[in-house]
Computed example of a mutant assay.
Amino acid sequence: MATSSPAGRILAYLESAKNLTGSACGLAGLALTFTGLAGAYWPVVVAGLYGAGALIAPPSRPSVPGFPDASSRLEALRADFTLLREYLDEVDLPPAAAGRLVELTGLLEGLLAPGWVSEALAADPEGVHALSRAVHQDIPESVDTFVRTRWWTRMTPGSEPPERHLERQLELLHREAEQLATGLREAEARRQQTHTRYLEDRGGH
């Protein structure tokens, strides 16, 4: 509801907890007036009770923004990964680099596959960030830089083959993905060990 205009601010206050609580206390003051307990000072009593009620009411607060959760971010990342695969299918790479790229994308596909693996990944914000960086930045940048550098190398032969850098970059990215997969596996192993200890402690062994 918009509250920037004076009318909007007034309406917002009328609906606020402070006004509702104050009004309830004010009605209690009116009840005292009708019973004769407030006497001639009933306006002061009613106003005082209203003010006291407004003071003790919890302050209004803005709603917390609803950011996407990890599962929805992974779902969007899967769609982006599909676009990346379509782009990579159109690029002509040397056999060695192509092989490393297949290994890398296969590992990423396994990590992003719906199921318990991606559920474990969703509990690791740093892991989701690492995968997002690989899909959105690292892999397309490595491949596109190679394509552009290869054209210049053909124009000026004799320089260092760009595929060496591409192979090294893909190797490093694959190592990062492997470390992420290892971390998830170790987390599951710790979970299993914790459950074993729990059952042992429960059984008194």
Rank of each mutant, 00 (worst) to 15 (best):
L74W: 03
G99P: 02
V135C: 08
T149R: 13
L112F: 03
L121K: 02
E141Y: 10
R73T: 07
L83T: 12
A122Y: 01
H129N: 11
D138F: 00
E75W: 06
D124R: 09
S132R: 12
G115R: 01
V147Q: 14
D124Q: 05
L83E: 11
V143G: 04
R133V: 14
G110Q: 08
T145A: 11
L112Y: 08
G110I: 11
L101G: 02
A134N: 07
E103T: 13
H129L: 11
Y87W: 09
G127R: 08
L107M: 15
L77S: 05
G106M: 04
I139M: 02
T149Q: 12
D80E: 15
R78W: 00
A130P: 05
I139E: 03
V128N: 07
Q137P: 06
E109C: 13
L104T: 07
A97T: 02
A98G: 14
D92P: 05
V128P: 02
D138W: 07
L121T: 01
R78H: 04
Q137Y: 13
E126G: 00
R150C: 00
A98W: 09
A76T: 15
L112D: 05
E109A: 15
G106P: 05
V102L: 13
P94D: 03
P68I: 02
W116A: 14
A79T: 07
L74A: 07
Y87M: 10
A113Y: 00
G99E: 04
D80T: 11
F146P: 10
E126C: 03
A123M: 01
W116Q: 14
L93W: 02
L104V: 08
T105V: 15
H129Y: 04
R148L: 04
L101V: 05
F67C: 11
D144N: 03
E126P: 05
